[in-house]
Amino acid sequence: MPRGSDVGPAVSTDSVPGVCVVRLNAVVALLGRFPALAGVDLDISAGEVVLVQGPNGAGKSSLLRLCAGLLRPESGRAEVFGLDLATARSAVRRRVGLLGHDTALYDELTVEENLNFWAAASRVDRSAAVPALDRLGVSHRLHDVVVSKLSAGQRRRVAIAAVVMRRPELWLLDEPHAGLDQSGRDLVDELVIDAAAAGATVIMASHELDRTLDLAGRTVVVAGGMVVADRVQSGEGGIHAH
């Protein structure tokens, strides 16, 4: 099986390398009355793996939520897959996979029931659930266990499997290594590499620079709701301004 074929985008119309997947121009977005993003300019091309870093409250998660179509731009121009986030957020949402701080799993349902529900809700074939769980190393004996009985790490793996199952064109990973053991972290790294190899675009916010700097080809630094630095990692491990 070619690398990433099981996690690559289900639809790859905009996954041609070089095509701009995310285009943000002076985007302002509010959380309540608080400006979570205060004039973000950012272009991300198909196939890129971008690390978003910055201090707590800098706007990393808000940036991911904006790209997922969950946060409305108040001003500026925001496009994902060429679709305007002010008017076409529903169309964007179907093509992205967001792993947030929440797992979006129902405690009283089993692992398999949860994934079957999200598969049906996302118009994904239910047969995709078990391979996705296998990919995340979730043991078959856990498939019939209710989610409330799982450890935090197991729960996180199931949540990631739910994203994998959708085979999104744009992966938005918020602290993807959080709560995982060493093998889980390695699996996440493999997923990111495979997704990018298959033509998907990956944007991840993380504080774990030792792991994620190696994965990302580009680092975007966010502070105060703005992009304050944008660097591309060179092949020799050095970095230069983008």
């Binding site: 997922a68 949402r93 179907r94 947030g100 929440d102 979006a104 799993l105």
Partner: peptide, 17 residues
């Protein structure tokens, strides 16, 4: 509470339901 406790509401939006 079923939808709000662990972010399922957002996931429903993302799923396109």
């Amino acid at each position: 509470a079923v939808e709000t406790t662990d972010g399922a509401r957002r996931a429903l939006l993302l799923a396109g339901v």
